[in-house]
């Protein structure tokens, strides 16, 4: 290391890390709400709604996140909106997360064992009641491990927001590097910080998955 890395640099990186978390939360909450809507749309009784949401998911999942970020930024500019990198990145990430979480949650809803659907119908519950009282509570349990796992993806993906100028951890590192010129060391530190944020979530997700394995069996015999 150049030996010039001082506390100011570290604080700056820390500030960037906070913004990484902030942007991740924006993407999670925004994308979560939109993703929930998409998940329901994917299993809607209306064929046009199903096709529209499926198309949306296919388009997003077939496009690199970096391109989606550029599209968001340039798209908003094209309609005359000059927005801050935070809003542009937040909007793009929300669209991205919505597609992936929507798929995960759709899968979870459809993983609820068929006998549960039939039992709910047999009790003459309306579709809304079936969903809210029987299916969704169980789907949430099934969805938790992969959702926690996907949060790791979100945190990692925020690093691309640096490319559209948003100052999160990655961009902070590039800025620090512009004065220190020790790229390998700086990016190594940044890698460690990302690891510290992501690894605990990964472990948690794995632990949930193991517990779900047993839980799912219980659901089946309930």
């Amino acid at each position: 290391m150049g030996g010039h890395l001082n506390i100011n640099h570290l604080l700056f990186l820390g500030h960037g890390a906070l913004w990484t978390i902030g942007l991740s939360l924006i993407a999670l909450i925004g994308g979560g709400i939109a993703g929930f809507v998409i998940a329901l749309a994917r299993i809607s009784p209306l064929k046009s709604v199903r096709i529209a949401s499926a198309t949306y998911v296919q388009l997003i999942q077939g496009t690199p996140l970096l391109v989606i970020l550029f599209l968001g930024y340039s798209g908003l500019a094209a309609i005359g909106l000059r927005v801050s990198p935070l809003i542009a990145a937040g909007a793009s990430l929300t669209l991205y997360v919505a597609a992936y979480l929507g798929e995960i949650w759709r899968g979870s809803i459809q993983s609820v064992p068929k006998p549960q659907w039939e039992a709910a119908e047999g009790l003459a519950l309306s579709r809304t009641q079936r969903m809210t009282k029987v299916i969704l509570p169980q789907a949430i349990r099934i969805a938790t491990p992969p959702t926690v796992g996907f949060m790791v993806q979100i945190i990692k993906n925020t690093s691309l927001a640096s490319v559209v100028g948003f100052v999160e951890l990655m961009r902070s590192g590039q800025i620090v590097n512009n004065s220190l010129f020790e790229p390998f060391a700086i990016y190594a530190i940044i890698a460690v910080v990302y690891f510290a944020m992501c690894y605990p979530l990964s472990l948690f997700s794995q632990r949930l998955e193991r517990r779900m394995g047993r839980g799912r069996i219980n659901l089946g015999t309930a």
């Binding site: 691309l160 640096s162 390998f184 990016y187 890698a191 990302y194 690891f195 990964s202």
Partner: peptide
């Protein structure tokens, strides 16, 4: 495996490049 899966690809690319 854990190091790669818990760090962004962008960081990995820079580390390889500068490394």
């Amino acid at each position: 495996v854990e190091a790669i899966r818990n760090t962004p690809l962008l960081v990995q690319i820079f580390l390889v490049y500068f490394g």
